[in-house]
Nucleic acid binder design. Structure first.
Length: 492
RNA sequence: GUCCCCAUCGUCUAGUGGCCUAGGACACUGCCCUUUCAAGGCGGUGGCAUGGGUUCGAAUCCCAUUGGGGACGCCA
């Protein structure tokens, strides 16, 4: 590798890991792996009010859940650490001094109230709400004096008033900004803490980030950042702005659109490989055919050139379909390992689990493996396996009615079942075959009412598997109850 | 309001001037398979926002319009 590829994901710990953030992290991760580069995780916690340790914990956990392991960052360290911005304050102070000394930055004493008022006024009158430069031309001496006198101030970057700044984006090509539409933005707050644009640039430079891959909501920050790199005398990284992820109404994805945190999807029983695959396809594609990718394939195929420019609408239905695919691909043991806790949580299986319950629960879960799209729907699929009796739903009641046409057949079925020695798939099937031949009826005529009586619904996995797992006692009891509900009485 | 970005089926997208009477996937839907439901197989509905150019030839290039999104913080 001629060039050292270093990318970073830099979340602010002000909440959980968002779907959009996860996609950005994924693209960075894939790019780093593909290019044999380094994936850095940096926590941008300079907003003292909103940053929380709990958020840091959740974000790290969700990244790990997705398998997006970072090479440098929290917990693993690295030679460019520390990786929390609040632990890098000395660096920002140093750079601030550097800019101040060179006249690239200046102290501003305008109060936030005044600025807020001006901004509102500008917006209202259709003006551009940019800083008006009140303190821009204060002499350094005056400024020093006011600072000494204890006046509160922020530090702003002094931007050129003419000329243009060009972003040469890896995904979008060249974007041109007139410098005069930019304003002297704040580098450091009154309390001395750096602002986003400043800390991000200082760190990206210090951490030798070669490619800044981030959401396109950052495009308008980029010219400011470029000017800042120049003021700092630092080389520019390559920029790649990936399109945003929108909700169904085409506005920025937010809570209004349902679950938007990675953690919520994890809790709902989505598989990390499914979410990863789905997210990869939001704004990126490989060709005109392939939709399913293993992690290795994603790493192998990923390229910034194939990232699209237009925003993508998040489609929960497609994610769900994809999750179903991955569930079906799960090896049986792994599937069972995921299924049992769900059944326990639903109160269907006891905690702790004894060997028998574990084995039986696993077999029950396996029966509906092909039917599941998400693990949270598992309990609903298998609820009739638990408890002694079942209540028939409407569709089941309808099917049950069919039994009235051949009461004798079902009485006979009931009797044979209660006397059946080997209550297994094979034993049951053989017994029924004989019964059907004797009565001269089709299997369908028998199976629908039977299924209804035993499961309480009109559909289920294969009836023999269901009966075998349910066991003779409950099957016979439920069949009798079902028949009784349509007026067919059974002896014994 | 100002600046920036974007524009192919409902959604995700393939497509970089002729291979496109536009391909795939989800969703919807018909049929097959079948003990039901899924799954699977085979079909179907559905799209190049509009108007101008450029060209022998435009989904593909240019311009305008329209539409959508984003940014304009002592948030990130």
């Amino acid at each position: 590798m001629a060039e050292d590829i270093r990318v970073r994901f830099a979340p602010s710990p002000t909440g959980h890991l968002h779907i959009g953030g996860a996609r950005t992290a994924l693209f960075n991760y894939l790019y780093a792996r593909r290019q044999n580069g380094v994936f850095v995780l940096r926590i941008e916690d300079t907003d003292a009010e909103r940053s929380t340790d709990e958020s840091v914990r959740m974000i790290l956990q969700d990244l790990k859940w997705l398998g997006l392991t970072w090479d440098e960052g929290p917990e693993v360290g690295g030679e460019y650490g520390p990786y929390f911005q609040t632990q890098r304050l000395d660096l920002y102070r140093e750079k601030l001094e550097f800019l101040l000394e060179r006249g690239h930055a200046y102290a501003c004493f305008c109060s936030s109230e005044t600025l807020e008022k001006k901004r509102e006024q500008a917006m209202a009158t259709g003006q551009q709400p940019k800083y008006d430069g009140t303190c821009r031309n204060l002499s350094r001496a005056d400024a020093q004096a006011r600072i000494k006198a204890g006046e509160a101030y922020v530090v702003r970057l002094k931007l050129p008033t003419e000329g243009t700044t060009i972003i040469d984006d890896r995904i979008r090509g060249k974007m041109v900004f007139e410098n005069n539409v930019l304003d002297d933005f704040v580098l450091a707050r009154t309390n001395g803490l750096p602002m986003y644009n400043f800390a991000a640039v200082v760190d990206d430079a210090a951490m030798k980030i070669s490619h800044v891959i981030r959401g396109d909501d950052h495009i308008s920050n980029t010219p400011r950042q470029i000017l800042l790199y120049q003021a700092l005398g630092e080389p520019l990284p390559a920029f790649a702005h990936v399109p945003m992820i929108l909700g169904a109404d085409k506005t920025r994805l937010s809570k209004r659109h349902g679950a938007t945190s990675v953690g919520a999807y994890a809790d709902e029983g989505y598989l990390p490989q499914a979410l990863t695959n789905y997210l990869a396809l939001l704004g990126w594609s490989f060709d005109d055919k392939t939709t399913l990718f293993t992690r290795e394939q994603l790493i192998d195929k990923f390229s910034l050139k194939k990232v699209s420019k237009n925003p993508a609408v998040f489609d929960p239905a497609k994610l769900q379909w994809m999750n179903g695919i991955y569930i079906r691909q799960l090896p049986a043991e792994e599937y069972v390992a995921r299924a049992l806790p769900v059944l326990i949580a639903a109160g269907l299986l006891p905690e702790p689990l004894d060997e028998a319950a574990r084995a039986w629960g696993g077999r029950v879960a396996l029966l509906v493996k092909e039917h599941l799209k998400i693990f949270t729907e598992l309990p609903a699929h298998v609820s009739y396996f638990f408890g002694e009796t079942v209540e028939l739903d409407e569709t089941a009641k309808e099917k049950m009615l069919l039994a009235k046409e051949r009461p004798d057949l079902f009485k006979s079925l009931h009797q044979k079942m209660s006397m059946l020695e080997s209550f297994t798939h094979k034993g049951l099937e053989e017994m029924m075959k004989v019964l059907l031949a004797e009565a001269q009826v089709k299997f369908g005529d028998l199976v629908h009412p039977l299924r209804a009586a035993v499961t309480g619904r009109a559909n289920s996995p294969g009836i023999f598997e269901v009966l075998e797992l349910l066991g003779k006692e409950r099957t016979v009891k439920r069949l009798a109850a079902g028949l009784a509900s349509v007026g067919i009485t059974t002896e014994n």
